[in-house]
């Protein structure tokens, strides 16, 4: 039998005890051990970004990360974005308003990329957003409306902040 390691993983604010082989990727643990199938796997070699999650707030490729590496870290997946009643957050709403998704397969990766980025840079220019969006691959949209969605979400957050 392969080695099994016991780890405690903190995902979306919940703690999970797991017994897993060290070669098991974070993406597989999230999807198949924890049932968080919102994180998708598009290339298994770290380029497409469909598996992007936040590790301690920073976007990271779950397909290139072994689950045993991130014990003790705060992991966030797309399932954490909506409210407890399932209502979409402002970023998700911006994606639907701007038709920033079609087949939806790459979408969770773009959402988590944007979530991490906007937390770090709340006032990005459109060109800066475009550069960040270039971290991931989408085959359906041509990216234009993904950039639109993130730009409008950022603008709205700033406006809400200013008026609040």
């Amino acid at each position: 039998m392969p080695d099994i390691q016991l780890i405690e993983l903190n995902v979306n604010g919940e703690s999970h005890d797991l017994a897993i082989p060290p070669r098991r990727t974070l993406a597989d643990v999230l999807r198949h051990d924890l049932g968080l199938t919102g994180t998708h796997v598009g290339c298994e070699h770290g380029i497409c970004g469909a598996c992007t999650v936040l590790i301690d707030g920073a976007p990271a490729r779950a397909c290139l990360t072994f689950a045993v590496q991130v014990e003790g870290a705060e992991i966030r997946t797309v399932e954490s974005l909506a409210g407890p009643d399932g209502a979409m957050n402002d970023l998700q709403q911006a994606f639907t308003d701007h038709h920033g998704l079609q087949c939806g397969f790459c979408t969770p990766g773009f959402l988590m990329l944007a979530e991490g980025y906007l937390a770090e840079e709340p006032e990005p220019t459109r060109e800066e957003i475009r550069e960040v969006v270039a971290s991931n691959i989408c085959r359906c949209t041509g990216y234009h409306t993904i950039v639109d969605a993130i730009e409008h979400c950022a603008r709205k957050r700033r406006a809400d902040c200013a008026s609040g």
Partner: peptide, 22 residues
């Protein structure tokens, strides 16, 4: 330009693609 019926599930990680099935 009716909002897409598909979007809420796909945006919240509740879409079900083939590798999500068991």
């Amino acid at each position: 330009s009716v909002p897409r019926r598909e979007d809420p599930r796909l945006l919240t990680g509740r879409g079900r693609y083939v590798d999500d099935l068991t």
